[in-house]
Amino acid sequence: MRLLRRIPIHVLLTIGAITMVLPFIWMVSTSLKTPQETFIPPDFFHLRPTWIPEKVIFSNYVEAWNEVPFPRYFLNTVFIAICTVSGVLITSCLAAYAFARFDFPGREPLFVFFLSMMIVPQAVYLVPSFIILSKLGWVDTYLALIVPWLAQIFSIFLLRQQFRTIPNDYYDAALIDGCSRMGFLWRILVPLSKPTLVTIGLFSLLGSWNTFIWPLIMTNSDKLRPIQVGLSYFAQEQGTEYGLMMAAATFCVAPIVIIYFIAQKQVIESYARSGIKG
C-alpha cells in the first residue's frame, strides 16, 4: 500500500532526473558521431541513431584535443586552481582566526564592511579592475588570473563561524601550555575545522575551473587561456562541426564531473551549508 502510493512520486522524480541527464547523454552521443550522422535530424523516441550512433567513432576527441592547444589550457587551469585554492585557504584561515579570536577595536565594523562587499555584482568591478590591472601591468599575465582571487570574503565568513564554535577554553589552555597563537591556529583550529576547509577548497576549485568572464576580459593571448575560455573560442570557431564541439565540451566537463561523483556528498553538503544564513 505504502509502496503503491510512492509510485507517482517516483514517476515525477524520475521524469525530472531524466531531464537533468539527457543533455549530458546527448552531448556524449553527438561527440561519438560522424559528421554525416550529426546532420540527420534526430528522432527523440528512437534509440538509434538518435541516442546510440550507427557508427561510433572516437576521432572527434583526438581531433578536438589536437586542433587547439587544449593540453595547454588544462595546465593553465590546473596551475591557476592550485594557486588559488591554496592561497584562499591560507588567507582565509589567518583572517578568520583574527576575526574570531582576537579582541581589537574596529573588529566588527571591519568584518561587516567586508561582508557588505559581497552584494556588489561582478559587473560593477569588471571595468575598474581592468583599469587597475593594466596600471599594474598585469593584464594578460597569470597574476591577473590568480592574485585578485586569493582572498574570498565568503570563505572568511564561513571559517570565522566555524572557529567560533570551538570553545575559548581550548585557546586559553593551549596558550597556558606554551602554544603560540600561530601554533594554535595550525595545530588545533585547522584540524578541527576540516569540513569547512573542504567546503572552501571545493568552492574555490569549482570557481577557478568554471570561471569565464574574468579571464575572457583580462587575457588576450592563447598561451594564458584557461579551459573555459579556450573551450568557448574553440566552439565559436567550429561552425557546424557539432561532433568536435561536443567532444571538447565532454572532456572539459569530465574532470569536474568525476570529482563531483567521487565527493558528491561533500559538494552538496557544502552548498547546502552555504545557503544557511549566519
Binding site: 525530472g16 532526473a17 569565464f212 568557448s232 563531483y260
Partner: peptide, 11 residues
C-alpha cells in the same frame, strides 16, 4: 539534480 550546477556554464 545537482549535476548541472557543477558543470561549467560554457559547456
Amino acid at each position: 539534480y545537482f549535476l548541472p550546477v557543477v558543470t561549467s556554464l560554457v559547456a
